[in-house]
Amino acid sequence: MATDVGGLTATTTGVTVRNLHRSFNRSGGVLNGLDLDIAPGEFVALIGRSGSGKSTLLRALAGLDRDVQGYGRISVPEQVSVVFQDSRLLPWKRLLANVTFGLDGKDAAERGLRALTEVGLAGRESAWPAELSGGQQQRAALARSLVREPQLLLADEPFGALDALTRLQMHELLRKLCAVHRPAVLLVTHDVDEAIVLADRVILLDGGVVATDVRIDLAQRSQADPGFAGLRHQLLDALGATGEHLGSDFIAPGQRRVS
């Protein structure tokens, strides 16, 4: 079921977006009648140039932007969690208290400890956020999101500020966690390689609508597979950035994007 935008409808059938509009000024819309479906348990990566509406769409699905316009509708699962580029840990709370913040139930602490173990932070429950590395802080952010057993995980460039090695470690961790918890995932990223390696589908936004929708075969996720290079070139070409002519909105393997 679904309703007109201005309020989200909870559903158990994944994500449905129809005819979604959003503009911030009179010069044109950021989202212009966007349609999107995400199945339960499906991992979708969202790419596109800056200003194409990636984060705007994510905020609308999270219920953080109620000014979407038009005759569209948004249906999302009842349990939704968001992970941002920075961990957004509360510096005055220790790690376990950060992970379980706002969590109801007598077993909250037990669930929090279990989540910290899942992300490789067992024994650090009493640490302050400032005592953690950037990668550890993002692990804690994942634990805080997954401890609520979300049916939809929204991730807005969660690894964009990490170094190359830590990013690869976080990719592997996210894959394992998603295999266990099975949420639907919408990952916003500027890294085409990251999108291919992690996602079941890669969606490209352009002009405020879905311009490209590509399903990823399991073999293509390996950079050693010939299909990886072809798919990467296809997506970069769709972005208008190929070979040595990568724009500043995109990053090549091993590079870091500076926001």
Rank of each mutant, 00 (worst) to 15 (best):
M1K: 10
L8A: 11
A10S: 14
T13D: 14
G14Q: 04
N25I: 07
N32M: 12
A39P: 08
P40F: 13
A45Q: 11
S52D: 04
R66W: 03
Y71V: 08
S75I: 14
E78H: 10
V83W: 00
R88M: 00
K93S: 09
K93Y: 13
N98M: 03
T100M: 00
D104A: 11
D107Q: 15
L113G: 00
T117H: 14
A127C: 08
W128N: 09
A130Y: 08
G135I: 15
A141T: 02
S145I: 03
E149T: 08
Q151W: 01
L152Y: 04
G160W: 13
A161E: 09
D163L: 14
L165E: 15
L168W: 02
E172I: 14
E172Y: 01
K176V: 05
A179C: 03
A184R: 00
T189I: 00
H190L: 00
A199F: 13
D200Y: 04
V202P: 05
V202D: 03
I203C: 02
L204F: 02
D206F: 11
D206S: 10
T212V: 15
D213Y: 03
I216V: 12
I216D: 03
Q220A: 13
S222D: 13
A224W: 05
F228M: 04
A229G: 13
R232G: 15
R232E: 04
H233P: 00
Q234A: 14
G240S: 02
A241M: 11
T242A: 10
T242E: 15
H245F: 06
S248T: 13
G254H: 11
G254K: 03
Q255G: 06
V258R: 15
